[in-house]
Design a protein around this nucleic acid. Sequence first.
DNA 1: AACAGGGTCAACCGCAAGGAC
DNA 2: CGTCCTTGCGGTTGACCCTGT
Length: 416
Amino acid sequence: MGRSPCCDKVGLKKGPWTPEEDQKLLAYIEEHGHGSWRALPAKAGLQRCGKSCRLRWTNYLRPDIKRGKFTLQEEQTIIQLHALLGNRWSAIATYLPKRTDNEIKNYWNTHLKKRLVKMGIDPVTHKPKNDALLSNDGQSKNAANLSHMAQWESARLEAEARLARQSKLRSNSFQSSITSQELTAPSPSSPLSKLVVGPASCLDVLKAWNSVWIKPMNEVPVASASANISVTGLARDLESPTSTLGYFENAQHIGTSGIGGNSTVLYEFVGNSSGSSEGGIMNNEESEEDWKGFGNSSTGHLPEFNKDGINENNSISFTSGLQDLTLPMDNTWTAESLRSNTEQISPGNFVETFTDLLLSNSGDGDLSEAGGTESDNGGEGSGSGNTSENCEDNKNYWNSIFNLVNNSSPSDSAMF
DNA sequence: AACAGGGTCAACCGCAAGGAC
DNA sequence: CGTCCTTGCGGTTGACCCTGT
């Protein structure tokens, strides 16, 4: 409005791209790289503005783009990350390296948001619409803490997304030494794929743990820890000072036991999903019909958050095996605090232990019906009459989000 | 067959951040 | 330090498609 368009030259084409234009753009980039987008159209013989070319390339022509239906797991990832990150599509897209932010955004707006609404969940806050239910018992404190953690983490992830972009820019100097094939279409197993489109982050507490156990000589608080070039070589070198790009590899090393193979999911498909979900792909009709509340795909129920986990001192207390642990919940998880609080447990147990915290107390949590089917919770959902169930839903919802952040990465996810 | 309404998604627009000068 | 330029992001648009009447 009032601002001149980016393509103020008359005669520049707009609208859908033709196959000929695609071919010109592809051929030029394959041969020369995109270079300056502004200069590209003239060099490539296209009557388009550079911005249009860039969009066409990044959203459609790029060879490493996965097209087609979103898998169940991708849907779960999007929803759960959206709960943490909000409409930060580019940050969400870093967890789905073969999907573009535009595609994710479209999919959210046209599919996922509507499903959440149908389930009685506010797609903005990811809370049950009847949120007053949460304030009725002591569990609301846990929910509030989790929400607080999520908001806090969200802000941090946003910053890290920016840093990750900076890292990408810095990585350009490395890319010249990497084959052009990897540059244009890094395979999932390629180091470059992790390097360029690595996961944005996970919880600070895990990163802090990482700095304690993986980089024991590094005594600086995590928030200001400097990049350690020597630890994981190239990937670590490309890491931004506070970014956890590459972190998941370490997290994998220290904590895959116990949680690596058991992906707890937030939304469960039931009924005929087993027959239709080969490879995790479901058609829309089935997705709509079978989308169920919350649960664990393998066990049928999702462990609850330990209602005693967050105590009155605003710290987390939990037990893993024979070991008791207390962590502060004051947003100051640092290498120091973690070391002092957790030195009694072994590194290999921590991720499992912390996940236990988040997903603990599974003994009595038969929540396979907690979220309810669409018929269960039509209208205002199941919240209309059952306070405890809604609290369970909310807890499990956030449990799953943290579980996702703890467990998932493009490299270890089943779909990558 | 024709039309209307809704859904989908590629593409556009405007803004902001960051680098170069 | 200020300005310009480039790039990336998120919101929005509109053409196309599908389905129901």
